Simulated assay, not measured.
Amino acid sequence: MTALMSLTLGCENPEPTRALCQALGVADRVSAAHSDEPTTGFRGFSLSLVAPSRGHVDALLQVALDGGASVLQPASTSFWGYGAIVASPDGAIWKFASSSKKDTGEAVPEFDNLVVLLGVDDVKASKRFYISQGMHAGRSFGGKYAELGGTDGGLTLAVYPRKTAAKEVGADPAGSGSHRVVLGSDGPAFTDPDGFVWEPAGMTSER
């Protein structure tokens, strides 16, 4: 089975993003490389750190802010839980979230899962494509949501409709140009129907 193992964010200045990834504890899975490819608006993806409690969310948020991230949506409680959304120095969108609205234990910047969420034109078509690339089909809700691949790399891949993905992080779905991200897998290189580039993990080049 093919699995998502790593993620490389394209940045005009990679160093602040590398430092932020180190501070958040994801540098073993998320890296940064130079990119000056033109891009405008919503880049079609977001990263979500799923945490045990709201205290962990607050701790992660503070680490991100100390690392130069800017707040897109302040921490707040909703019917699904508690969360906040930021943009890292390179412009990538990060969400820190917990289904728990209560603090449990010490509030430290730790998380249970890192989810890479891609906004796609057609969830069902994307699911079929990724299965054809050797990925395992996980949870799926028709044309609304699908999880793909294993989590051997400590990453979960999910696809939403692009408008839904943008709405979830409070972004305008409009955007064009490069996604400025390369996804690393334990399989061969390919580009998906929405233009997301995949390369063998550990072999992503600066772009």
Rank of each mutant, 00 (worst) to 15 (best):
H34W: 14
V71L: 09
R18E: 08
A27Y: 09
A92Q: 06
L148G: 02
G68Q: 01
T17L: 07
S100G: 00
A84P: 05
L118M: 07
R207V: 13
R139V: 12
P161V: 09
P89R: 04
A158Q: 10
P109V: 11
P193R: 00
G177D: 14
S126W: 07
R162G: 09
P193C: 06
S88C: 13
C11P: 05
A171C: 13
E168W: 11
T151P: 04
L148P: 01
G184I: 08
D194M: 01
G177L: 13
V50R: 11
G195E: 08
D103L: 00
A97Q: 02
V182M: 13
A75W: 04
L49W: 04
T39Q: 13
V116L: 15
H56I: 12
F196K: 03
W198G: 04
R180K: 12
A146H: 04
N13C: 06
D36H: 13
E110Q: 15
F129Y: 15
L61K: 05
S76K: 07
Y82D: 03
D186V: 01
L117M: 11
Y130W: 11
I131K: 15
T2L: 08
S35H: 10
P109D: 04
A97P: 02
M203K: 15
T39Y: 10
L47Y: 07
Q62M: 14
A64W: 09
G175A: 07
V182W: 12
A201R: 03
V63Y: 02
S132N: 08
R207F: 11
L61A: 08
A137D: 14
L61W: 06
S178T: 12
E12Q: 12
L24F: 05
L65Q: 12
R54P: 00
R207Y: 12
A201G: 01
G142A: 04
A19I: 14
S76P: 02
L183H: 08
A3S: 15
R29D: 04
S53P: 06
A107W: 04
F190H: 02
A87V: 10
G68L: 00
V169F: 00
A158M: 12
